[in-house]
């Protein structure tokens, strides 16, 4: 049985928005289709080997926790970049998208270097971008909407090497101006959307799993459909919620 190897980065520090829900979705959707999976928690001081994983997840955390892990992440950065270049599937959410970028400039002007697997940078803004959000996404020839909740003070700007994950239908997105959300580059996805992200967005979950399986077995994969009626209904509710006036 094919086993997908999932790396969960800093689960003890970066877990503020029900992030473990994303991991459940990944492992359960594999299990329901007859694949197995292993989840390895990689924390501060643990080694990250690029050859050990097919999928790498990082969630959101409180500011003080994000600062705490940033130093450790800098040490892992070369290995993480090499995994991204090798086609490992990445999902980095909330604080994760900022850390995946090139740098983060905080309110006092001091600069924190990111891992650099996404060509973007983030500058602390003056207002918190907060609320329900819906985006339209087109990745790898698949089109779908993604819904979630955003809550960030960072204003993120994409460079030329990364594309947005989607156009904003309702809500803010990466910053107060561009009307786009998230970033995709190679098989790395960064996004501010939580809620958690994956339970209500099975299309996105399956895209990430397809990539991870393809990395594992080195051939193209087409996943069978699952009965997603709870997700479809929850998704609908979230879209209508996002469409309401704030």
């Amino acid at each position: 049985m094919t086993e997908v190897r999932i790396c969960h980065l800093y689960p003890n520090h970066m877990n503020i928005y029900g992030d473990r829900g994303n991991i459940s979705v990944l492992t359960k959707r594999l299990q329901w289709r007859g694949y197995s999976s292993s989840v390895t928690n990689v924390g501060i001081g643990d080694k990250f080997s690029p050859d050990d994983f097919d999928l790498c997840y990082l969630g959101g955390g409180q500011d003080k926790d994000q600062n705490l892990i940033a130093f450790d992440l800098a040490e892992k950065a070369p290995a993480i970049r090499s995994a991204a270049d090798d086609g490992v599937s990445f999902l980095w959410v909330c604080g994760g998208i900022q850390l995946a970028g090139k740098r983060y400039v905080d309110a006092s002007g001091s600069e924190l270097l990111g891992v650099g697997i996404l060509d973007l940078e983030t500058i602390a803004g003056t207002e918190r971008l907060i609320g329900d959000i819906a985006i339209r996404s087109s990745v790898d020839g698949r089109e779908f909407t993604v819904v979630g909740y955003e809550n960030h003070i960072g204003q993120t700007y994409l460079g030329s090497d990364s594309r947005p994950l989607g156009e904003v239908l309702h809500g803010y997105g990466n910053n107060s101006f561009d009307q786009v959300e998230g970033a995709v580059q190679q098989r790395v996805i960064g996004t501010y959307l939580h809620g958690p992200l994956l339970p209500k967005n099975p299309d996105l979950a399956d895209l990430i799993l397809t990539w991870a399986l393809e990395h594992r077995i080195s051939e193209s994969v087409s996943l069978e459909k699952l009965d997603d009626n709870f997700a479809v209904n929850a998704h609908k509710r979230a879209v209508s919620r996002a469409g309401l006036k704030r």
Binding site: G21, K28, G195, P199, K200, A234
Partner: peptide
């Protein structure tokens, strides 16, 4: 409640029989 399906997903992925 208004987010009943979010709860349904929570329990589904929590391992409760659909």
């Amino acid at each position: 409640g208004e987010r009943s399906f979010d709860l349904a997903l929570r329990f589904l992925y929590g391992g409760f029989e659909k």
